[in-house]
């Protein structure tokens, strides 16, 4: 019996040396959903996403993606299976050109250059500014443009699940709005998204469901509008 969830995490733990960062996380993401994970700085959001991508090793628990256990899989295999990750702080390949960054995002498509060119066109349509600057090195882009590049790079991996780690971090309010609009749009087009944010308000506004993470534990999980209305959540994370 295949389960309904695309991603199902159960009892996940992760350590940095002796420090335990994740204390038994359980959550799931269904196909087509936009799920937000909110929580204060240091709650373990980034660690959770890195563990999903296989960059950080889980010390216990299970991660099942599409009914396959991936917690022991090599990171490049995880990307091939369809999990693409926009890391915290964008982390573009600064000395490489914008186009090279995007092509590296399509690294798993490398044997099919025609297909890659086609996908690249799609990204340039989504972010015309990247086409304009495609010959420049990624390091010369502004913060917002780098965020678009990081998202475009992940999209070129043709994600079945897109992980976004604080895409609004350090951006001006107008750009934050723009980025969240794009995320909503991608989700409307059918991309399943797991969005991590300290900006809980904005994230929950576009999400279907949300989880609240605190010191490596999920303390609350509910529909996004319920969380937005929840008195305790409002006080702790929405600042009013």
């Amino acid at each position: 019996m295949p389960s309904e969830a695309l991603l199902k995490i159960a009892g996940l733990t992760a350590h940095y040396g002796p420090i335990q960062a994740l204390h038994g996380i359980s959550l799931e993401v269904k196909p087509g959903e936009l799920v937000a994970i909110v929580g204060a700085n240091g709650a373990g959001k980034t660690t959770l996403l890195l563990t999903l991508s296989g960059v950080q090793r889980a010390s216990g628990g299970s991660i099942s993606f599409d009914d396959r256990e991936i917690s022991r899989m090599a990171s490049h295999k995880i990307v091939q299976s369809g999990i693409c990750h926009v890391p915290e702080g964008r982390q573009v390949f600064a000395p490489l050109s914008v186009e090279d960054n995007l092509r590296l995002g399509g690294y798993s498509l490398r044997s099919d250059q025609d297909r890659l060119d086609q996908e690249l066109d799609g990204i340039y349509q989504l972010f015309p500014i990247l086409k304009e600057k495609r010959k420049q090195t990624a390091g010369t882009l502004s913060g917002g443009q780098q965020q678009m590049l990081a998202i475009g790079r992940a999209l070129l991996g043709r994600p079945r699940l897109l992980l976004l780690d604080e895409p609004s971090m350090g951006l001006a309010p107008l750009l934050v709005e723009e980025i969240f609009r794009v995320i909503r749009e991608l989700n409307d087009k059918g991309v399943t998204i797991l969005l991590v944010e300290q900006n809980a308000n904005a994230a929950l506004r576009i999400a279907d469901r949300g989880y609240v993470l605190e010191t490596g534990r999920v303390i609350l999980g509910a529909a996004a509008d319920e969380l937005l209305a929840d008195e305790a959540v409002r006080r702790a994370y929405l600042g009013h």
């Binding site: 296989g54 090599a74 990171s75 890391p87 490489l96 092509r103 590296l104 690294y107």
Partner: peptide, 22 residues
């Protein structure tokens, strides 16, 4: 592609993992 993938590893190893480079 492989040459650029090595450059990618050298400028950001985590990001290289995340785009699926072995």
């Amino acid at each position: 592609t492989h040459g650029k993938a090595i450059l990618a590893c050298s400028c950001n190893r985590t990001a290289a993992h995340l785009v699926g480079i072995n």
